[in-house]
Nucleic acid binder design. Structure first.
Lengths: 391, 391
DNA sequence: AAACGCCGTGCAAGCGGTTGCGTAACAATT
DNA sequence: AATTGTTACGCAACCGCTTGCACGGCGTTT
């Protein structure tokens, strides 16, 4: 049952293996009556073609690889989920490669871990070296990227610099002038580009407003809660405190929030805080942030990859840009007054009547990049009527 | 370069393909001098064997599948990370199957999505139906499980009932008598067992203490923040409020925390709250919870699977039990007094001197299950000296 | 009625490895 | 010197599926 061969199906249907092959793959050239017989025979025997043999014969593996530097961070999990769904729907298999350290990276690119193993590769927020790019090209399969861009490869990404700029601009608009920044570790080889570009945006915003940048206002940490906490503590040890902080990602913002509260600083009364990504927890913390639809980005680029794998012809590489959006919640306020930019109405909790009106902060959604809609239908058991947030 | 064949290597080394094959796989019977020549030739040509051909010839795929019902929840990501690491180190490939809905589940089990595709299967917290079990057996490859148990399959899991019991016992010890419970959706087909068993533990603890269980004290929600929030709102609408709440997982506890605070109830002064899992955020929220080392469970069962795949002989199925531990933090307190069970010292924040002493709550670690050590070395960029928590 | 095209099917040669078996070549035993 | 044993390697038959090509049968053209 588990190891039925095509020959057995052929015998049972009274035809040759080639007919079975053609018929089952629907390549035509087989009469409907024969097809029917074959289908029945296959059905009865519980036949399914051996992937290995199929691969060997066709040269196609029916598999794509997704390569990412992190796994536990929200952004990556989200992306992975979206990609997996699209890939699976396309009938392909997904091979996961975690290149968390340089050794794995070596194995993945330099030596050919991927060679002859996949029909396509999806790279997530990896800034590649020249040799790595060469190795990927040598694979001779379509390569797609997310959060980065390399000539010849299709890609999708947000405008990190512009979005970071918008985040800082928001703080400036609220009257802040001493704006700190918590960035990823600059020595972190993996996430190089994103961190760098968001920092660019920070500086650009300062410059545009005529504000002076300063080493004093920047601190680094890992892209994590702990990292954000530590970086904030660093900032708090500097000569003069910032009145607002821009964290390069929401996880770091959570850490910052904790650090600030620990020392008794109120947010946003004493310090405004803005994050980046719109992590699901951001809503929980009422964190003002830059929102991006990670799921959708994953979906789009995965579809791109599926298309390229299906038709290895000269599909031109596309370079997509995903929108971002400033979502104002409760952690940013006008300098000095501690007043929130808009006065959000808190739902009256406690009442049983309030059950379905949940106290979600009505946020002010200013589009950094218009035409943005958040659509996700991925979870099977999704909570209905929960998207009343911002539009 | 990318598609060198074994024949070419053989020619270049002046030997037959069989010698190349044997030599490269180190099966012996090849002289050292010849081996050297072959190695050089292979090296120069950048040869790597075609997985497809190898699979077809040997019948082994060098691939294992991991099947899980969720992806975005912490527990599953953690597990996935651990498993991936072990599998990769063993030189195998990991195929990920997300069976979030019944359709995918069908495809995965009933029709043979896995057939001839993998050498082993790892099932995560899936409670299987009889036909599904039969289908898995028909695969004729080693199957391992985590969070569930089926005769003949190796497995690892915590004692959900006992651990839940310990959680509730903790609340009882603090003087609570009206103890609510937030459980997963009982109609949720995927997570059936875990939810059920934790609930058993809850009831067992109540019974042991002579407390009466009541429908009034239970509420359901999805295994998520939102679900916990909603369930808590339900509880708050009941006739009499519980003085303490046991949430079946930390995510739900977070939601509960939000809901409680929203209506002005103080935690733990007014209501004590305990979770389950020890999600990284639990520390952040000072959530008292039951801790389990998910990473280690993943590692252990993955190693088990690797062993079974390597030696398909009669490796006896093992049924491992992982320990859990009550971690008392700040969300549980003695009934009425609002006093925490032990008086944790908060680090003096604000001082720069406090930087490295971070204000981690010194928790009281009571072992539910002794001999438990938390060891993780997975992240490349791990924060040093951060494990000062409980022992 | 012969010639021609088309359709449906089978034959057999791959695809790129692995492996049982056979056989030189040489060493060790008698 | 003949026999036996050991070692190093090649031959060829798979593994299970795909696919170019040949071929027989049948309906159209001239």
């Amino acid at each position: 049952m588990a190891k039925t061969t095509i020959k057995e199906v052929a015998d049972r249907a009274g035809v040759s293996p080639s007919s079975v092959s053609r018929s089952l793959r629907g390549v035509g050239g087989i009469s409907t009556s024969t097809t029917k017989r074959i289908r029945e025979a296959a059905e009865q025997l519980g036949y399914s073609a051996s992937p290995a043999a199929h691969r060997l014969a066709t040269g196609r593996t029916g598999t794509v690889a997704i390569v990412m530097p992190y796994l536990t961070r929200w952004f990556f999990v989200e992306l992975f989920g979206a990609v997996e769904q699209v890939i699976r729907e396309a009938g392909l298999d997904l091979l996961f490669y975690h290149v968390g350290n340089t050794e794995m990276r070596q194995r993945c690119f330099a030596s050919g871990l991927l060679r002859k193993r996949v029909d396509g590769v999806l790279l997530v927020t990896l800034s590649l070296t020249e040799p790595e790019i060469a190795a990927l090209r040598a694979l001779d399969v379509p390569v797609c990227m997310i959060g980065a861009q390399v000539g010849g490869f299709s890609s999708i990404r947000i405008d990190d610099a512009e979005s970071a700029c918008a985040a800082v601009q928001h703080l400036i608009n609220l009257g802040h002038e001493r704006i700190g920044m918590i960035s990823g570790d600059p020595n972190e080889p993996q996430h190089f580009t994103v961190a760098l570009r968001r920092r660019e945006g920070y500086h650009a915003a300062l410059k545009a407003a005529g504000l002076r940048a300063s080493r004093e206002l920047e601190a680094h940490g890992a892209f994590s809660i702990e990292g954000g906490d530590e970086a904030t503590v660093q900032l708090l040890g500097r000569r003069s405190l910032p009145t607002a902080i821009f964290a390069e990602c929401d996880e770091m913002a959570f850490g910052a929030l904790r650090a600030l509260r620990r020392v008794g600083l109120r947010v946003p009364a004493d310090v405004s805080l803005i994050g980046f990504d719109d992590h699901p927890m951001a809503q929980y913390f009422e964190l003002t942030t830059i929102s991006q639809d990670v799921w959708d980005q994953g979906r789009q680029i995965a579809q791109q990859l599926v298309g390229a794998v299906a038709r290895p012809g000269v599909a031109p590489a596309v370079e997509l840009r995903a929108p971002t959006r400033l979502v104002v919640r409760g952690t940013t306020a006008v300098l000095g007054t501690g007043q929130r930019p808009s006065s959000p109405q808190r739902a009256a909790g406690g009442h049983v009547a309030g059950v379905n009106r949940r106290s979600v902060l009505r946020s002010v959604g200013q589009s950094v990049n218009p035409g943005y809609t958040k659509r996700r239908e991925r979870e099977t058991h999704k909570n209905e009527a929960n998207t009343q947030e911002e539009r």
